[in-house]
Every structure is written in C-alpha cells, then in structure tokens.
Amino acid sequence: MPDPTNAPTNAPAAANIQGNPQPVRFRGGGFNPRRHPWAALAAFALLVALWEGASRVGLASPLFLPPPSAVGRALAGMIADGSLWLNLKASLLRIGVGWSLGTLGGLTVGLLMGVASVARAVGVPLVSAFFPIPKIALLPLFILWFGIGEASKFATIGFGVFFPTVIATYSAIDSVPRNLIRMAQSFGLPWGAILRNILLPGALPGILAGFRITASIALILVVAAEMIGAEYGIGAFVLMAGNLMQTDTLLAGVLVMSALGLTIGALLSLLERRLLVWR
C-alpha cells in the first residue's frame, strides 16, 4: 500500500527536470471496500425503530404487521417455556442428517460425473430431468415410500440438497485449470495423486459455494419436510402459527429461521477460510 503523502508524483524523470517534486494526493483506491462494522447494525436498528414506530402510531395494524416488541415477546415466550429449544433441536437434526445424506450422495455422483465422461453423459440429462421436480409435490409419495416418521423428512431435505450439490461438484471439477492437470500428467503423477492434489483442492472453492446454496435450500425445505406429521420443529411451528393466524408467533419463528441461516453462513465462511488457506 503506497503512502499517499510520500507518493512520487510523476515518473522519476519528471522529478529530475523540476528538481523539487510537488506532493500529489493518492488518487487510486476510490472504490476499495472498507469495513463499516456499525453501518449494517445501524441500518437494522433504524428499520426496527421505524417498524415499531409505525405500529405505535397506528399506521400498521398489529394483525397485518405485528410490531417488533410483540415479536420479541413471542420469542421470549418460546425461550421461557422451552419450546424454542425443543423445536430447534428437532429441526437441526433433520437439517443435519438430510443435508449430510444429500451432500454425500451429491459429492460422490458429482465427482464421478466430473472425472468419468460416461458418468457425465448419463448424469447430466438425468439431473436436468429430476432437479426441477418440486419436492413438495412429491410429499404424498414420500409418505408412501418412507412413512411419516423421520425418514421421509430426511429424504425431502436430502433430495433437495442432492441435485444442486451434483451440479456444483461436477462443474467445479470441470473448471479446474486443464494445464495443471496436463502438467501433472506429463510429470507422470499417478491418477490418485492428481485427484488428491490437483482436482479436489482446485474444485473446493466451487464445492463450498455449492454448500452455501444447499444449506439455504435445506433450511427452506425443512418447512416442507415438517408438513409431514411433525410434532416439533421450527418449520412445523411456523406452519402452525400460520394456520392459527398468530402473526406475531409466525414472525418469531421466521426470525429464528433467518438467525439459523446467518449462523450456518458464518460457519461456512469459517470453513472456507480454513480449507482455502492455500489460495
């Protein structure tokens, strides 16, 4: 980073002619991102204050848009009677198991499609055919295949996560620079070593970006999964609040879900920093 005050104005040749160089302000870096840790918080606080104010003044009916204080009270109630933890625990288990199953399967298939051209020739049309099927439309079938216990919930999330993982994995492997692979091949590296040392690390950024998407998909699908006879779960909780028209409780549940999304996002950032140190 050049020091703005001591930056050489023109080329040294010009300085020689003039003899006494004029200090010139550093003009670069105008759009460099700077850290504003308080800006996001302040904007959020302002939004909440406006929202609360609108409700207090009577601009927004508490039925259509419950004020943040009512949502906070509902949330405090959930924490106090322990239902928050009970619901969160059930959903985290479903997200954890469903996402892991879908990711494992997706990584395996995606890897195969990335390295074997026969697997890709078979896989690409199949993925294109099955990915767009809305998992919610398949729920009655999932009930028949997997019952109404946890298995059908894992399956709903797992299927939703599987296809994007396949696509992310095989396109990440596809985008590993060819010259690196060719160089390794010309140096006579064994196939396994190329996979371990070049293909997988090179594909990792793309795969991790895929995780970010599939983690959000898992969060969205937990609501669909918990349509199937779930007694507890944050998705079941949100559905019930909607059915009962308890709008403040509904928003409290939504708040918990977005907090969950933030947490998972932060964890993934941590994972990226750890795994992508080599960059």
Binding site: I143, M227, G229, A230
Partner: peptide, 9 residues
C-alpha cells in the same frame, strides 16, 4: 394427532 396439511397427504 398427526397433522399432514391436506387431504391427499
């Protein structure tokens, strides 16, 4: 009680 959202399910 097993809530399943709609009659088909």
């Amino acid at each position: 009680m097993v809530p399943l959202q709609d009659v088909p399910k």
